[in-house]
Design a protein around this nucleic acid. Structure first.
Lengths: 346, 346
DNA sequence: GGCCTCGATTGAAGCGCTGCAAACCGATGT
DNA sequence: ACATCGGTTTGCAGCGCTTCAATCGAGGCC
């Protein structure tokens, strides 16, 4: 077991040592660090030199305590394996750098306990605020029910009407429509939707988009499938189940809620030699993951502006922290269709 | 621009409020939080109730300051897009949970400035220590040259003999041998190695393994290629260059330093109809990324125990923090061969 | 019954830094 | 020569918590 804390008195230089060496008061050293504009250039120089000489590293805890806050924001990601979240992190980091704060990350694996734990850690390290990616109503409620934290939370990748938080998300309903309309435009009319557990908001929204697009076109769905998960193995199973229906001409287009799912489906379908893909059936995925790119038959998909989502989240946080009178709001970003071979009818 | 700090006096409950409500002294509340064994059970109960009632959240900065340290460790990852690093994070988190600390992540994108910045942030938030993934000697030197930080640093995915830090890495030389021997065992003898910039230690080690395996078999290499990067596009270019040599029978096996590279090569080769793959040429990658799985022809690869690497790093850190007399050491983990279709000769 | 012991509790002293108001100082205006 | 005025610098009072020595009280022992 680790010792509860580090030893005190690590012999490291403190602000007083720097002040002594530079021949100024500790306050001046502090000012050099935090409000250089108030300090005469010559003094800044002296102090900087002393800092370098002593290899002084300010104690962040003391700083945060005295100042009442830090210069970092937390970002809780629900799936590091999904490039969407990596993009979110990149976008947030870029925007953070612009306004001079740093981003610290945590990985929740989509588990509520870990989401809460991460928020707690961020709060305790006095983060200015936290961005949290969420994808399910139950988690949202749990987070909303938490004792109001000191620092604001921005919810990403989830939308609701409660206005409890600022939030930003990508329009999955529209994304679902985009994918579905793409197939309809190619003359497909016997479409099925394959989505994971309906409790995941993004998946459910995509399904709604699917239905909406069909309704607009006056077409009836040829079915919906809900595997337990949205991964490749489940996609493969669904693909197996779908193969006979494709052969029977009952299904000529498949809208999948994720690229992994789509990749599994394509793989299963490709194993049946008599199925011509994409001739007889179009498959479209969602997310624009590497899986879609890499597939034997590159898979059409809907790409999400992850970096923009991260940047937007950070901007919302900055806005909320700015001190201006603030009204929670929700920003919606739009996904885009990416056409590849799995939906090309030559 | 953000305000430098949060407002003071956020009306949130403090330890004194809890103490007041529970009818004990602040010290006792602190003891309940940090040394419950010193407090009478009945008192613990009272205090816990008061904490819940007031939704008290201890101020981490004050805690860290007073205690001289926090309960979290930092982990700087160089490429969130590569599943190896995600695995490292998972392994480290799991091990951290076991010993009751939390892991905070930062993404360096393999850039030195960001590596340093992240370490700084971790230090300032008084992390117990940091794990840092590194992959190039220049960065290693820069980190080693840093003013000695308060908290220990463990280097991951890089090895050296300096014993400046504890470190853990995966034996890339052996991995390279594994890959190469696999091709040799299948009767391939005209092998080329395709690796990225030699400055990347993992890539260079894999190349060494390649050479060592050839030397042991008494075979001469049919060439080495060093694209700028180790991504798919560069792989594709190399594949193009290699195609005529494959057709001419000069090359019958390709050892690539990454799966992305291998995927690009396979793609380029597959575009030449007269090349039989894997009949005429075997291709093997490295990393066991999704790219290898997903490829039109699934690519054999070398899988790395990323989670184990992360867990090992955390164990080393715990050891170094334990206070026992400590000697820096370096742990080497072994990769494993994963056979797929790209090297199957039927 | 008085004295000692030991677990439980407490008061006070910081942890290292920042913010603020007061102090300082050379320059300017009259 | 003196009051005034910005730009600089400084001393002081905490930030909210932990720690440690000191205190308290209830048994236990002779």
């Amino acid at each position: 077991m680790l010792p509860a804390t580090r030893r005190r008195n690590t012999g490291a230089a403190g602000i007083d040592d720097v002040a002594g060496l530079a021949g100024v008061s500790p306050s001046t050293v502090s000012n050099v660090l935090n409000h250089p504009e108030r300090v005469a250039p010559a003094t800044i120089d002296k102090v900087r030199r002393a800092i370098a000489m002593l290899q002084y590293v300010p104690n962040g805890a003391a700083r945060s305590l005295a100042a009442g806050g830090s210069r970092s924001v937390g970002l809780v990601l629900s799936d590091l394996g999904n490039s969407l979240f990596v993009d979110i992190a990149r976008g947030a980091e870029e925007r953070a750098a612009e306004i001079g704060v740093s981003v610290i990350l945590a990985n929740s694996e989509g588990r509520l306990d870990r989401e809460e734990r991460a928020l707690e850690v961020f709060e305790q390290s006095l983060a200015l605020g936290s961005l949290l990616t969420l994808n399910d109503a139950e988690h949202f409620r749990a987070i909303a029910a938490r004792p109001a934290s000191r620092a604001p939370i921005i919810v990403l990748n989830y939308h609701d009407t409660s206005a409890l938080f600022c939030s930003a998300h990508i329009d999955n309903v529209h994304g679902g429509e985009l994918a579905t309309r793409h197939l309809l435009n190619q003359g497909r009319s016997r479409l099925v939707f394959v989505g994971g557990p309906g409790s995941l908001q993004p998946v459910d929204d995509r399904r709604q988009g699917f239905e909406r697009a069909l309704a607009a076109a006056g077409v009836r769905a040829a079915g919906e499938y809900s595997p337990e998960q949205v991964n490749r193995a489940d996609g493969w199973l669904v693909g197996r189940a779908l193969a006979p229906r494709v052969l029977a001409g009952e299904v000529d287009g498949i809208v999948a809620a994720s690229d992994l799912l789509a990749a599994g489906i394509v793989q299963a379908l490709a194993e049946v030699p008599s199925i011509d893909l994409p001739g007889a059936v179009s498959v479209i995925g969602y997310d624009n993951n590497q899986a879609a790119w890499d597939a034997p038959i590159p898979i059409s998909t809907v790409s999400q502006p992850g970096a923009e989502l991260g940047a937007t989240g950070l901007a919302l946080l900055a806005e909320e922290l700015s001190g201006e009178p603030h009204q929670h709001r929700s920003i919606r970003l739009q996904p885009a269709l990416v056409e590849r071979r799995s939906t090309r009818r030559d």
